[in-house]
Amino acid sequence: MLNVQIVLFDGFDLLDAIAPYEVFCAASMYAENKLAVELVTAEGARSVPSGTNGLVIQASGRLNPDRAGILLVPGASGDVKDAEGPASIPAILSRAMKTEITGLIGKALERGEITVATVCGGSLLLAMGGLLDGRPAVTNQMGMEFLGATGAVPIHARIVDDGNLVSGGGVTSGLDVALYLVERELGPRIAHAVEQLFEFERRGTVWKDKGLAPEGRTLGDDDEPSHSPAARIPFENPVAAASMFEGIWDATLATPVGKLQVRLMISTSDGMVFGKATQGDETLDFLNPVLKEGTLTWSLRITKPMRLNLKFEVVADGNQMTGTAKAGMLPASKLTGKRLSPSGGIS
């Protein structure tokens, strides 16, 4: 028996979840009940409001990360006009990430007999929780840059098969992902029968990291390369940099998911700039810090409250710092800071 769990959360996208549900139910009919599909949540059986006009769907059980089979995670449906509001897709995914979903799915990914599948923004939910670091995946085209900012490797394909992780890009890809999984697990004849029933043929080539690579291309080379781990970069005017930015700063980031307090420690030595950022119990080195025309930029790989590669751009005026931090498609977060000490104390 192939067990399929479709994982719902508040604000999930209806088509992401229900299209695969129908495919798996049809496959069960043709496969003489050798497949069982269930709607589940991290909390257990409950009514789950979707992100489409709040339409409620009843989940019948709790996500079980130890049950062999398939776990399918849909994306979110929300306000695409206001990317900073509480009804936006990033905000819905962030709230879902703070439940037990990512922890339970993380356990499932550790088990060889479980395939985790995502549809559209479902891969972003996992990536924000740090589960896709270094793994090829796809999401809705509007979220590909953001997917890369989480540390995943964005692949521009309809379906990406990375072994125990299968992802689909776009809200209608739920049909394609489910049909592909039916073919992979139960065979092409069952998948073909479902296609005939639905009068729908699966779209696109399934991308796998196998076979000959196209000449001159490498994995994920359509997207921005990852940052080097350099902690210091030469800058134009070390004297000006020391007076403008050197010191310990208390900074606040106003993000779509709430305000974050960050302690920045910046110093200079021998024409080089050094930086560290502390948020909670996590301290990270600046990546690729560069000073140009009075603006200091750097990147930071944070893991809390979600895993993201943030790009900072700040200016200093006396003991006041202002700027932005941005990750992929997310709107830029405003940064404000106050210098506490004239010395960063970093070497």
Rank of each mutant, 00 (worst) to 15 (best):
E145N: 14
F146P: 01
F146T: 09
L147R: 05
A149F: 05
T150D: 01
T150S: 00
T150R: 02
G151D: 04
G151L: 03
V153T: 01
P154V: 06
I155M: 02
H156N: 13
R158H: 13
R158W: 14
I159H: 08
D161G: 04
G163C: 02
V166R: 04
V166M: 05
S167R: 04
G168Q: 12
G170T: 03
G170P: 09
G170Y: 09
G170V: 07
T172F: 03
T172H: 02
G174F: 05
G174R: 06
L175H: 09
L175T: 07
D176K: 06
D176N: 13
A178M: 09
A178E: 05
A178I: 03
L179A: 09
L179K: 07
V182W: 03
G187M: 09
G187P: 10
P188R: 14
I190P: 05
I190C: 07
A191M: 02
H192E: 15
H192N: 08
A193M: 12
A193D: 13
V194S: 13
E195S: 12
E195T: 06
L197K: 11
F198I: 11
E199L: 14
F200L: 12
F200C: 06
R203V: 12
G204M: 15
T205E: 15
T205Y: 12
D209P: 08
K210I: 10
K210A: 15
K210L: 14
G211D: 10
P214H: 01
P214G: 00
P214L: 02
P214T: 00
E215N: 00
R217T: 02
G220R: 06
G220V: 07
D223A: 14
E224Y: 11
S226L: 11
H227M: 11
H227Y: 11
H227L: 14
S228R: 01
S228E: 10
R232L: 11
I233F: 11
F235I: 12
P238C: 07
P238G: 09
A240M: 06
A240C: 00
A242Y: 07
S243E: 15
F245Q: 02
F245P: 01
E246N: 08
G247M: 06
G247C: 05
G247K: 05
W249K: 11
W249M: 12
T252C: 12
L253G: 02
L253N: 04
L253S: 08
A254L: 14
V257F: 15
G258Q: 07
K259T: 13
K259L: 07
L260A: 03
L260F: 08
V262T: 10
V262I: 06
V262R: 00
R263Y: 02
L264K: 00
M265W: 00
I266W: 04
I266K: 03
I266N: 03
S267Y: 07
S267E: 11
S269P: 00
S269R: 15
G271Q: 08
F274M: 13
F274A: 09
A277V: 12
T278Q: 15
Q279M: 13
G280N: 06
G280E: 13
D281N: 14
L284I: 14
L284A: 09
D285T: 13
F286K: 01
F286G: 02
L287T: 02
N288T: 08
